[in-house]
Design a protein around this nucleic acid. Structure first.
Length: 888
RNA sequence: GGGAGCUUAGCUCAGCUGGUUCAGAGCACCUGCCUUACAAGCAGGGGGUCAUAGGUUCGAACCCUAUAGCUCCCACCA
C-alpha cells in the first residue's frame, strides 16, 4: 500500500481525540499515584478562542501530557468563568437588539435570558480547545456560577464578614458609567492623554457677603474637568503661598452657579502647578474627597450613575458629562470667566471591560480589607514556596502586595453571586445566607421589635471574588464547609495544592495573587507551586492582537491549515516564559514541516525489508551505538529544560534530535543501499534498534505533537487495546559515554569537509572519491561512516601528502581528496596561507596567556591544562600546514 | 513621579558562578542539487565592534559607573 507523502492530519486529529476521550485517558480520579494537577484559567464563558488561549493552553497541555507519561496521575480541570460585567454587557446588548430594555425586566426575567444565552453560546471555547488537543478531564468541567460553586462564594463572603475582613462603607470608587457599576482599581486602565487645562477665574467676595461681590478681584484656578465646578464646595491654596494671602477672610463665587464657597488651606496643593489654586469637588475626585473629609466640606454629587448631570448640578441637568464640558467652556468664556486654555499630558482611567472613562464616584460599596489576609500570600512567594516563572515578576508582585488596597467587591449587576446581606426598612443590615437566617439575626439584635419586610442587597460580587476560589472549589465546592474543622473531600485532599498554573501576567493581581490569598485563608496552603506567566501574543508589528485591530488570525483556521501539531509547535518555538510572542504564520509552517519530516522518516522505516539472514554492517553498528548515546545525552538536556520550564528550549532540543541527529545522520547511516532499482534489505538488529529509537523519539515528541505521534505509534507496531502513546512511559535516561560523541563529532566534521570539497568542485553525488589520511594516531572506527555519508570509495592511511589533492585539517589530522582535474595550486596555496595565519594568531594568543604569570597563578589548573593542550594542538597544526605549503 | 527589566546575525532568541564547549541556535538569505523517505526536501555557505563611552581584572557579551533607546508594572498632581 502506498503511504501518502504528507501526513493527512485532519482526519487523524479527529480520530485520535475521540479515541483518547472514549478510552478515558484524560480522566483522573484519586489513586495511589502522585498527582499532577493543573486548573485551567477559566476563559470567559462568552469567549471565543484567540491566540492568547492557544499559547496558554498549548503550554498547559504540554506540561500535563508529559506528567501523564511520567506516570503521574495527571488531572487538568477545565471550565469557564461567568465574567459578570462582560457577560451582562453582552446580554444587555443582545436584548437591546430584540428591543428589550434591561430596565423593563425584573431581576429574575433578566437572569432567565442570561442563562438561556449562556446555555446556547457558552462554552464554545471549550469545544474549540479540543481541536487543539487539550487533554482536559472533561468530566470535571466547571462553571464559576454553577450552583455549588456559587454557594461556596456566598459562604466565603459570610465567613470573611464574620472574621471582620469584609466591611461596607461609602468610599470613592471607580464608576463605570457604561456598565453602571463600581469596578476595582485593577479594572481601571490608565492611559496617557493630551488634555486641555482650563484656567477659570472665580470672583472674590467678602466672607459675610452672599454673592454680591463688590470688589472686582479674581482668583484663577486650573482644571481639566470644568464641568465639575457645578460641584465645587471650596477653593484650596497652599498655606504658605503669598500670592493668595489676600484671600484671608474672603470667599469666592463659583461661576455660572453663583454659589459662594470658602477658602481652605492645605499643603497638598502644589504651588507650581497651574495657578497654585485648586477648586475642590469632594464628590468627584479622590483627592478632593480626602480634602473634603479633612476640612469638613459639603459634598455635592452632580452626576447621575450614567454620567449625565444630576439635579444637584442645577445646570445642564440630564446632559452627558462630555457634552457639558464643551458647553460649559463656551458659557464660561461668554461670561468672561475663561482666562486661558493650555494643553497638558495627563492620565485618564478607562474601564477594562467597557472602555468607558471611569468616573470617581462616592458610593456605598462592600470591601475586602486586604492587609491582614494577604500576608501569607506575600511571604510564601518571597520565600520561594510558590515560584513565579520567570522570576522577574516577583518584584512586581511584592510591590503590589506591599501596597495592596482594599478590594471593592460589590458590583451593581445581576449576573453573578448576589451579596448575602439583608436590610430592614430602617436600613440596618445583617449578613446571612438565607432570608430565614437573616431574620433570626435581626431578632437577636433587637429581640423586642417586630421585623418587617427585609430585602437582600441588589448587588453581586466581583467575578474575581468567585474565581479566586477556583483551585479549591473545582475539587471541593464546599471550600471550607462552613467551619474550621472541615477537612475537605477526597478530591481536594488528593489534588490540592495543584502543581502548575499557566496564565498571562496581566492577571497576576486580579487572579493569581487573590487565589494565593484564598488558598492560605481556606486551605491553609498554597493553591499551586509554580506560576508560569506567558507572554502576550503580538503581531509582526509588535501590536497586541485584538479584535478591534483585526490583526489576530483565527486559531481554528490556522489549525485547519497547518494542523494542530503544527500550530502547537509554532506557538512554542519562540515563546520563553514571560517573553512576548511576535506571532507569524511562518512559525506554524515550520511546525507543519516538522511533522511532515517525522512522517517521512516513518515512511522510510516502514518501507524497510528485513532480512534476518544478513549481518549487521559496521556502519549500522556504529550508527546504533552513536544514536543510543546521543539520545540519552539529549534526553537529559530536554528533561533539564522542562524542569526549568524552558519549553521553547525543550522543543528545540527535541526538534534537532529528531531532524538532525535521527533523520539527517542516523537514518542516512543505516539506510540500505539502492542497487538495480531496488532497495537492499536491512538486517534484523539494525531494524529493531531503529524501531526502538523511533518509539522513544515519538514519546519525547508527544507532549508537543500529540496527534502525529499517536498516529505513528500505532502505525509503527501493532498495539494492544489500551496501549497508546498518550499514556506511554516517558523514556528514562541511561548512562552514556560522552567521549564517544566527541570522537564521532570528528567523523562528522570529516564528512562535512569532504562534502564541501565535492560541492566546490561540483562532483556529482554518484561519483566516488578517495580519501587519504595522514594522522599521528590513526583511528579508523568511523571509516565506514565517512565512506557512506560522503561518497568516499576508500579511506587510505598515508605518511606523505599525495600530489594533486585538496586537503583539510580536522584537529591535527590531515585529510586529502585526490583530484585528477580541478586542483588549482594557487587557490590551494591561498587557502592554506589563510588557515596558517589564523592558527598562528591563535597560537600567539594562547602563548601570551601562558606566558602571563598572573594567569598561571590565578586561573584554575584545568584551565591551564586546556590552554597547554591548545598550544600543542595549534603547533602541530601549523607544522602540518607549513609542510603542505612547501610541498605545493 | 516611583520601580523592574531589556538592548547579542535580517528576524526571534540561547549564552549558568568572568577563561575557545564564547561569539551560538532556529528561521530567513545565498550557492548547488528533481540523489526513489521527505522540494513542506537534501548538501554546502555567507552574516554580529555582543546599544554607546569609560572603569575593574592577567582576562569582560558576562562585574561596576555613566549615556542613549525600548518595554512593562505601580502611582490621586488638579
Amino acid at each position: 500500500m502506498e503511504i501518502p507523502k504528507t501526513f493527512e492530519f485532519a482526519a487523524a486529529e479527529k480520530h485520535w481525540y475521540d479515541f483518547w476521550n472514549k478510552k478515558g485517558f484524560f480522566r483522573s480520579v484519586p489513586d495511589h499515584r502522585e498527582p499532577y494537577t493543573v486548573v485551567i484559567p477559566p476563559p470567559n464563558v462568552t469567549g471565543v478562542l484567540h491566540m492568547g488561549h492557544m499559547l496558554n493552553n498549548t503550554i498547559q497541555d504540554v506540561l500535563v501530557r508529559r506528567a501523564r507519561m511520567q506516570g503521574k496521575n495527571a488531572c487538568w480541570v477545565p471550565g469557564t468563568d461567568h465574567a459578570s460585567i462582560a457577560t451582562e454587557a453582552k446580554v444587555v446588548a443582545l436584548l437591546k437588539e430584540k428591543g428589550i430594555n434591561k430596565k423593563d425586566l425584573s431581576r429574575e426575567e433578566f437572569l432567565k435570558y442570561a442563562w438561556e444565552w449562556k446555555e446556547k453560546y457558552g462554552g464554545i471555547i471549550l469545544e474549540q480547545l479540543k481541536t487543539l488537543g487539550a487533554s482536559c478531564d472533561w468530566e470535571r468541567t466547571r462553571f464559576t456560577m454553577e450552583e455549588e460553586l456559587s454557594e461556596s462564594v456566598i459562604d466565603v463572603f459570610i465567613d470573611l464578614y464574620k472574621k471582620g475582613h469584609i466591611y461596607r462603607g461609602t468610599r470613592m470608587v471607580n464608576w463605570d458609567v457604561s456598565a453602571l457599576t463600581a469596578v476595582s482599581d485593577e479594572e481601571v486602565i490608565m492611559k496617557e492623554a493630551t488634555s486641555k487645562l482650563y484656567y477659570i477665574r472665580y470672583k472674590i467676595v467678602q466672607e459675610d457677603s452672599f454673592g454680591e461681590g463688590t470688589e472686582d478681584e479674581w482668583v484663577t484656578i486650573a482644571t481639566t474637568r470644568p464641568e465639575t465646578i457645578l460641584g465645587d464646595t471650596a477653593l484650596c491654596v497652599h498655606p504658605e503661598d503669598e500670592r493668595y494671602a489676600k484671600l484671608k477672610g474672603k470667599k469666592v463665587i463659583v461661576p455660572l452657579v453663583n454659589r459662594a464657597i470658602g477658602i481652605i488651606y492645605d499643603e497638598y496643593v502644589d504651588k507650581e502647578f497651574g495657578t497654585g489654586a485648586l477648586k475642590v469637588t469632594p464628590a468627584h475626585d479622590r483627592n478632593d474627597y480626602d480634602l473634603g473629609k479633612k476640612h469638613k466640606l459639603e459634598s455635592i454629587d452632580i452626576f447621575n450613575p450614567d454620567g449625565t448631570i444630576s439635579a444637584a448640578g442645577k445646570l445642564y441637568v440630564g446632559k452627558d458629562r462630555f457634552a457639558v464640558r464643551k458647553e460649559i467652556v463656551k458659557d464660561l468664556e461668554e461670561a468672561g470667566h475663561l482666562v486661558k486654555v493650555e494643553e497638558i499630558k495627563n492620565n485618564i482611567g478607562y474601564s477594562e471591560r467597557t472602555n468607558a472613562v471611569i468616573e470617581p464616584r462616592l458610593s456605598m460599596q462592600w470591601f475586602v480589607s486586604m492587609k491582614g489576609i494577604s500576608k501569607p500570600a506575600l511571604e510564601n512567594v518571597l520565600n520561594g514556596e510558590i515560584q513565579l516563572i520567570p522570576e522577574k515578576f516577583i518584584n512586581t508582585y511584592r510591590h503590589w502586595m506591599e501596597n495592596v488596597q482594599d478590594w471593592c467587591v460589590s458590583r451593581q449587576l445581576w449576573w453573578g453571586q448576589q451579596i448575602p446581606a439583608w436590610y430592614d426598612v430602617g436600613g440596618n443590615f445583617v449578613v446571612a445566607k438565607t432570608e430565614e437566617e437573616a431574620r433570626e439575626l435581626f431578632k437577636l439584635r433587637t429581640p423586642n421589635s417586630e421585623i418587617g419586610t427585609i430585602r437582600q442587597d441588589e448587588d453581586v460580587v466581583d467575578t474575581w471574588f468567585s474565581s479566586w476560589l477556583w483551585p479549591i472549589s473545582v475539587f471541593d465546592p464546599k471550600v471550607f464547609g462552613g467551619g474550621k474543622e472541615y477537612k475537605g473531600n477526597a478530591d481536594i485532599n488528593y489534588y490540592y495544592p495543584t502543581n502548575d498554573l499557566v496564565t498571562a501576567p496581566e492577571i497576576l493581581f486580579f487572579w493569581v495573587a487573590r487565589m494565593i490569598i484564598a488558598g492560605y485563608e481556606y486551605r491553609g496552603a498554597k493553591p499551586f507551586s509554580n506560576v508560569y506567566l506567558t507572554g502576550i501574543v503580538r503581531d509582526k508589528q509588535g501590536r497586541k492582537m485584538s479584535k478591534s485591530l483585526g490583526n489576530s488570525p483565527d486559531p481554528l483556521d490556522l489549525i485547519t491549515k497547518y494542523s494542530a501539531d503544527g500550530v502547537r509547535v509554532g506557538m512554542l518555538l519562540c515563546s520563553p516564559a514571560g517573553n512576548d510572542l511576535p506571532f507569524d504564520d511562518s512559525m506554524c509552517e515550520q511546525g507543519r514541516n516538522f511533522s511532515n519530516k517525522i512522517w517521512n522518516a516513518f515512511r522510510l522505516v516502514k518501507g524497510f525489508n528485513v532480512d534476518a539472514s544478513i549481518e549487521q554492517p559496521n556502519v549500522s553498528k556504529v550508527a546504533v551505538e552513536w544514536f543510543e548515546v546521543k539520545f540519552n545525552q539529549q534526553l537529559e538536556i530536554i528533561n533539564d529544560h522542562y524542569s526549568k520550564f524552558r519549553l521553547s528550549d525543550a522543543l528545540m532540543a527535541t526538534y534537532k534530535l529528531v531532524w538532525d541527529d535521527f533523520c539527517a545522520w542516523y537514518l542516512e547511516m543505516i539506510k540500505p543501499e539502492f542497487v538495480d532499482g531496488k532497495s537492499l534489505p536491512i538486517d534484523e538488529k539494525t531494524f529493531s534498534a531503529t524501531l526502538l529509537f523511533f518509539d522513544k523519539l515519538l514519546k519525547v515528541l508527544h507532549p508537543f505533537m500529540p496527534f502525529i505521534t499517536e498516529e505513528l505509534y500505532h502505525l509503527l507496531s501493532e498495539r494492544k487495546e489500551m496501549d497508546a502513546i498518550v499514556v506511554a512511559q516517558w523514556p528514562t535516561t541511561e548512562k552514556f559515554d560522552e567521549k564517544f560523541i566527541e570522537r564521532f563529532n570528528l567523523a562528522i566534521e570529516v564528512v562535512a569537509q569532504v562534502r564541501n570539497i565535492r560541492n566546490q568542485k561540483s562532483i556529482h553525488p554518484r561519483e566516488l572519491v578517495e580519501l587519504m589520511v595522514k594522522a599521528a594516531v590513526p583511528d579508523n572506527s568511523f571509516d565506514s561512516v565517512i565512506k557512506k555519508l560522503s561518497g568516499v570509495s576508500n579511506v587510505n592511511y598515508v605518511n606523505e601528502k599525495p600530489i594533486g589533492a585538496q586537503g583539510f585539517l580536522v584537529k591535527a589530522n590531515e585529510y586529502f581528496v585526490p583530484l585528477t582535474l580541478n586542483v588549482n595550486p594557487e587557490e590551494e596555496k591561498a587557502r592554506l596561507k589563510k588557515e596558517l595565519e589564523y592558527n598562528k594568531g591563535f597560537l600567539q594568543s594562547v602563548q601570551k596567556k601562558l606566558a602571563n604569570e598572573k594567569f598561571v597563578a590565578n586561573a584554575k589548573p584545568e584551565l591551564i591544562e586546556l590552554e597547554r593542550r591548545k598550544q600543542t594542538d595549534a603547533e602541530s597544526k601549523i607544522k602540518a600546514i607549513e609542510e603542505q605549503l612547501s610541498n605545493l
